[in-house]
Simulated assay, not measured.
Amino acid sequence: MPALHELRMTPYRNRSGSSGVAAYALLDDGIVVRFSDGAIYRYGHTHPGRHHVGKMKSLAMAGQGLGAYIRRYVRDKYESREH
């Protein structure tokens, strides 16, 4: 797998206008999220788990609620991080 910063990312639509999420990449076994501060996190089936990853993918594609969901339910349960 390429480094997280090398992945092709989809711009996050940020429908609320207040999200810290800038972009995301959907993976077979997870999701990668780039925040507006440049930090990139990989969330997967191991951490935080399939349930959370599925919800995060849905929110990412909808363009709303992803940042809030991460803050509320996931926090520091990520598989890897780049900054």
Rank of each mutant, 00 (worst) to 15 (best):
N14K: 12
H45R: 14
D28I: 03
E82M: 09
E79T: 04
F35Y: 13
A22V: 02
V33K: 01
T46W: 10
I70S: 00
K55F: 00
H5P: 04
D37M: 03
L59C: 05
L26W: 06
R75T: 06
Y73K: 06
P2W: 10
Q64W: 04
H5S: 13
R81I: 05
S80C: 07
R71W: 09
Y12K: 09
F35I: 00
I40D: 03
T46I: 08
N14Q: 07
A39S: 11
V33Q: 00
P11S: 15
S80A: 08
Y41E: 06
Y69T: 03
Y43K: 13
G63Q: 08
R13Y: 05
P2Q: 15
R15A: 06
M61S: 08
S58T: 04
K55C: 01
Y78L: 15
V74P: 01
L26S: 06
Y24H: 12
S36G: 10
G49K: 15
L59Q: 04
L7T: 01
L7I: 09
H83D: 10
V32Y: 11
Y41R: 14
S19A: 15
Y78F: 15
V53T: 01
L66G: 02
D28A: 08
D37T: 04
H47Y: 12
E6R: 15
G38L: 11
S19D: 12
D37Y: 05
D28E: 07
M1V: 09
D76F: 08
G30W: 14
G63M: 09
L66S: 01
A23K: 15
H47A: 13
T46E: 06
Y12N: 05
Y12I: 02
H47M: 13
H45K: 11
S18Y: 12
G44E: 03
A62L: 04
G67A: 12
A22Y: 05
H51N: 06
Y43W: 11
V33A: 05
Y43C: 04
P48S: 09
L59I: 03
R34L: 08
F35Q: 00
Q64S: 07
D76T: 03
R75Q: 07
I70N: 00
V21Y: 03
K57S: 03
L7C: 13
Q64D: 08
G38T: 14
L4E: 14
P48G: 10
R34M: 12
A22D: 09
V21M: 09
Y69P: 00
G30N: 12
E6C: 11
A25F: 14
R50N: 06
D76Y: 15
K55P: 00
V33G: 00
L66W: 03
A22I: 02
H45F: 14
A39D: 09
L7K: 12
G63S: 08
G67I: 10
K57N: 04
E82W: 08
S58M: 05
A39V: 13
K77L: 03
G54V: 11
D29C: 11
K57W: 03
G20P: 04
S16N: 11
Y69C: 04
K55N: 02
M1E: 14
L59R: 01
V74L: 05
E79V: 03
Y24C: 02
P2F: 10
H45L: 07
L27Y: 10
